[in-house]
Simulated assay, not measured.
Amino acid sequence: MTTKRDDFDPKAYNPIFEWRFLAPKYWGTWLAVILSLPIALLPLKAHQWMALKLANKLAKSKKGPAHRARVNFELCFPELSFEQREQLIHKALYTAAIFILRFSLLSLRSKGWLEQQCEFVNKQNLTKHTNNGENVILLVPHSWAIDVPAIFLASQGLPVSAMAKKQKNPVSDWLMHRQRVQYGGRVYERSGGIKPFIKSVKDGYLGYYLPDQDHGAELSEFVDFFATTKATLPGLSKLAKLSRATIVPLFASIDPETGKYSLEVLPALELQSEDQADARSMNIAIETFVKPKPEQYMWILQLLYTQKDGKNFYNLFKPRYKSDWKVSSNNATNS
């Protein structure tokens, strides 16, 4: 008889259901959840049809997600033509839509289904450390399928410890938390500091570290990121030292043609003691994952918001729609 692991930690973020969640102000959230369940159970062909419609519409927008992706692609891939970058935007939005339409399946289906849906590429790059009892922090870039590895690994007896920001909507916050820890694991609120996270890694949990968030100029190092520079959080060596952990990059993607997930693992990073070098090593890991399949990455985020000179390219590039950024329905393609 095996002893059931106790994942409860009073310092972790443990939201519970509250009766106020049923108030009229949250009925729209519940309606969206209720509708998402039967939609997720539709055949993949139906998801592909809906995703194509959504991508065709969103890719033509001159604001919101499409605009942010347009700015990011302009700065990161200047060697591509405008038309090539527009095709990438459409492909990324199509991939995102496929994932979102199927997102509820992560809770509706079983462990066995999840295992069948996940391909673990270069798994040995992780298991050679976990099998030796080493502490590990996973370096996980913001792909559309970023939540899948945490759920999958926990279902395989490798629970994850992550840090997350509490959402404004308490209903969606509670539901998302339940999904993330459905097979075990811990989530810590960022406002509580990093010490509980470090302790959980020492306790044997896989750390889940997001390397591509923008924390502002004061906390960041400006290092190369594709063809531009990005405000990147340093201190990875210090985090590894404090938690006595190995840093292992991991990237999750979804195949729109099959609906299946791929979890790809790189060899552990060789960290430096210098902040710039550490920050650059994180960005190299992101580039290695993203270059072969850029549509899998969340280019809709304000990845390049913080600039050394204080410029805001997401505002500065808006006039481009009146000059060389000619967005039209002809840019939409069939994925």
Rank of each mutant, 00 (worst) to 15 (best):
A40E: 08
L41Y: 01
L42W: 04
L42P: 03
L42N: 05
P43E: 08
P43I: 09
P43C: 12
P43Y: 12
P43N: 09
K45Q: 11
A46T: 15
A46P: 08
H47G: 12
W49P: 02
M50Y: 04
A51H: 03
L52Y: 11
L52W: 14
L52M: 14
K53V: 10
L54A: 15
L54E: 03
L54N: 10
A55P: 05
N56Y: 06
N56M: 08
L58H: 04
L58N: 05
A59H: 09
A59G: 13
S61I: 00
K62Y: 02
K63E: 09
G64D: 08
G64H: 01
G64L: 02
P65I: 04
A66V: 02
A66P: 06
H67N: 05
R68Y: 04
R68W: 03
R68M: 05
R68C: 10
A69N: 00
R70H: 03
R70W: 01
V71E: 00
N72I: 00
N72P: 04
F73W: 00
F73R: 00
F73S: 00
E74C: 00
E74Q: 07
E74V: 00
C76R: 02
F77M: 07
E79H: 13
E79W: 08
L80Q: 11
L80I: 07
S81H: 12
S81G: 15
S81C: 12
F82C: 08
F82T: 10
F82W: 12
E83R: 10
E83Q: 14
E83S: 14
Q84N: 11
Q84E: 15
Q84D: 11
Q84S: 12
R85K: 07
R85F: 00
Q87I: 10
Q87S: 12
Q87G: 15
Q87T: 12
L88H: 05
L88Y: 03
L88P: 04
I89N: 04
I89V: 14
I89Q: 00
K91N: 14
K91I: 06
K91A: 15
A92N: 10
L93K: 07
L93T: 08
Y94E: 01
T95I: 07
T95G: 07
T95L: 10
T95D: 02
T95A: 07
A96R: 00
A96G: 04
A96H: 02
A96F: 03
A97N: 10
A97T: 10
A97I: 03
A97R: 05
A97Y: 04
I98A: 08
I98C: 08
I98M: 06
I100M: 11
I100A: 12
R102Q: 14
R102Y: 02
R102H: 06
F103Q: 01
F103M: 01
F103A: 01
S104C: 12
S104Q: 14
L106T: 13
L106C: 11
L106A: 15
S107V: 09
S107I: 04
S107K: 09
L108E: 10
L108D: 06
R109Q: 14
R109S: 06
R109W: 02
S110W: 11
S110Y: 06
K111R: 13
K111A: 11
G112P: 01
W113C: 06
W113F: 01
L114C: 12
L114S: 13
E115Y: 10
E115V: 11
Q116E: 14
Q117P: 10
C118H: 05
C118K: 08
E119T: 15
E119Y: 10
F120V: 13
F120G: 07
F120A: 11
V121W: 02
N122V: 07
N122Y: 09
